[in-house]
């Protein structure tokens, strides 16, 4: 395991950053950490890379306890609100990061050229960072995170400033890292992104992990059906009680999550029993987005 956390908790005064997070990420995995804004994603990553200290709980990164300086040689990190010494050129910034990462002097130049090529900034490398577009700044940040060829890379919202092509390119970088056996921990609220590349995801909400597993596990699991029925006596929530839960929709048309597929005929029977007219009952293949919305909205109802 490259990441193992046990009950990792961060409390800011009265506010909970994240609470009792237990996760493990294996080598060569792309792990997606998904949640709405303010859910605690950045808090979690900041604890792992050493910006903030956990209130309680323990964690290991690359086999070493949190705060181990030597283990950080194998770590890369792109902060969420990245900002760099913008009076340096891209190349100078990377040189600085290479030096901080203890890359031997004679390897620095070739390594810098390599990461510049990866993030497609070779042409702009000698321009000052302050003249870069937001997207270019994000790329140079990714390049700085990659400089030491880390075994474990943390990216906190790495594509927030990128256009669709930029996003595609970042996805390609991430998958090429996995192909070389590196692990990537990806914070994002962009579901489609994660869906395309992640091996495993965890969904966090209000500081707690509400769903976790490999993408295939999570996406099969429970069954979702679209139901259109009218003239029900009582609400759809009532009808679904004991079978699963209503994920979204209102009145006549709803999306329902059932505990297993045997519940589908039971649901149909219940609707009829309740005097409803059933117009549509169709089983859906779950997407991550629905899983996410379901998980995030779940506790609020």
């Amino acid at each position: 395991m490259v990441i193992e956390t046990h009950d990792l908790t961060k409390v800011y005064g009265e506010k909970i950053g994240c609470e009792k997070i237990c996760l493990s990420v294996g080598e060569g995995q792309i792990f997606g950490f998904l949640g709405p804004n303010g859910a605690g994603k950045s808090t979690f990553v900041k604890m792992l890379v050493g910006l903030i200290k956990p209130t309680s709980g323990t964690a290991k990164l690359l086999g070493a306890p949190l705060g181990d300086v030597a283990a950080r040689r194998r770590l890369g990190f792109l902060p969420e609100n990245f900002r760099y010494q913008d009076w340096l050129s891209g190349r100078e910034l990377l040189y600085y990061h290479a030096a901080l990462a203890f890359i031997p002097r004679h390897e620095r130049v070739s390594r810098i050229d390599e990461v510049l090529r990866m993030v497609k900034l070779s042409a702009a490398a000698d321009g000052k960072i302050k003249t870069y577009s937001k997207g270019m700044q994000q790329r140079i940040g990714i390049a700085a995170a990659l400089i030491s060829d880390p075994d474990l890379l943390f990216l906190d919202e790495p594509t927030s400033a990128l256009d669709p092509i930029g996003r595609l390119e970042v996805r390609e970088i991430i998958t090429s890292l996995r192909d070389r056996g590196k692990a990537v921990f990806l914070n994002s609220h962009l579901l489609s992104e994660l869906e395309m590349i992640c091996d495993s995801v965890a969904i966090i909400k209000g500081g707690r992990v509400v769903e976790e597993g490999t993408l295939t596990e999570l996406l099969k699991g429970r069954v979702e059906v679209e139901v259109t029925a009218s003239q029900l006596n009582g609400s759809m929530e009532r009808v679904v009680e004991g079978l699963g839960r209503v994920l979204s929709g209102a009145d006549t048309s709803v999306l329902v999550e059932l505990d297993n597929e045997d519940m589908i005929p039971v649901l149909a029977a219940r609707i009829i029993e309740a005097g409803g007219k059933l117009y549509n009952l169709s089983r859906k293949k779950r997407t991550l987005e629905e899983l996410f919305l379901g998980a995030v909205k779940g506790g609020e109802a």
Partner: peptide
């Protein structure tokens, strides 16, 4: 305050 130091914190330096 401006976040410049954040990226440095994950480097192998005390």
């Amino acid at each position: 305050e401006n976040g410049i130091i954040h990226a440095m914190m994950a480097k192998p330096i005390r």
